[in-house]
């Protein structure tokens, strides 16, 4: 069985890389005494797999990790017990906000997610710049210079931009970007959306990871707290990796603004 967890990554911890944070998860799970399954061989590794890597420096309300449990190593843990422990053992800024149980045969997180919603903002980005950035959605093509195998080439990334909207205060760009194929990274979007701004000064927050289609195994969480209410104009077959029946006030989770 696989315990699929959703967590945040907020605050100073945003500077810890994806792989490094993976090691921190391993230690925290070990401290809980969770019967994590292991790979075989002389150097057994815990069977923990992470979803789409978050760029260094970005924050998130929607990080996912799959932890495979092996009943041979002990009783399967009660999520109500283990999740608060995990929150305690993980560094400040990492909170487990939802979980579900999926089968071992479930599609991996990397494959199941088709798009992510991001918020982009910065100290020098005003509301009119955000409004102008949203106009990109009307363009036929959006050209971005990208490196591929050492060579620079111009890609049209317009098909990867699913939605662009301003936040309610107008100061953040809310973007839904496709993750299929060669995904568009938020920093790359920042380069075209805010051309006058050093992209290293653009702050990035992932708010959702979306699943299209009918992957039934994603399941419904019994203890989930919504990362943040997200108003979107289209209610298609899209839903979050872990669905969110319960909403909590955004104020408990918002940082950085």
């Amino acid at each position: 069985m696989i315990l699929r967890l959703r967590s945040t990554k907020l605050g100073k911890i945003r500077f810890v890389g994806h792989r490094d944070l993976g090691r921190v998860w391993e230690r925290a799970l070990r401290r809980c005494g969770a019967p994590v399954a292991f790979t075989s061989g002389f150097t057994p590794r815990p069977r923990i797999s992470f979803g789409l890597a978050l760029p260094m420096g970005a924050e998130s309300l929607a990080e996912y990790v799959d932890v495979e449990m092996d009943p041979a190593f002990g009783e399967l843990p009660d999520p109500a017990v283990i999740l608060p422990q995990l929150c305690e053992f993980m560094p400040d800024g990492v909170d487990v906000t939802g979980y579900c149980i999926v089968d071992r045969s479930a599609t991996s997180l990397q494959e199941v997610v088709t798009s992510c919603t991001w918020e982009l903002w910065g100290p020098e980005i005003a509301a009119d710049e955000v409004a102008r950035a949203c106009e990109l959605i009307a363009a036929d093509t959006v050209s971005v210079e990208r490196e591929r195998k050492g060579a620079t080439r111009i890609d049209d990334v317009r098909p990867l931009i699913i939605d662009l909207q301003p936040s309610s205060d107008g100061l953040r760009l809310i973007a839904e970007l496709a993750t299929t194929g060669r995904a568009l990274r938020p920093a790359e979007l920042a380069g075209v959306a805010f051309p006058g701004c050093d992209r290293r000064d653009v702050r990035v927050l992932r708010t959702h990871q979306w699943v299209h289609g009918d992957h039934t195994e994603t399941g419904v969480s019994e203890d989930s707290r919504s990362p943040r209410e997200h108003s979107t104009s289209y209610g298609d077959s899209r839903r979050e990796v872990i669905s969110l029946p319960v909403a909590v006030p955004a104020s408990t989770l918002v940082v950085g603004a």
């Binding site: 100073k12 500077f15 810890v16 260094m56 420096g57 560094p91 400040d92 000064d201």
Partner: peptide, 24 residues
Amino acid sequence: VWARVEPLLARVQKPARYIGCEDG
């Protein structure tokens, strides 16, 4: 000086060296 350190961390390698937050 965190507010002044934070923007620099987007410009360096291995920024986790400078944030503390270790267990313990």
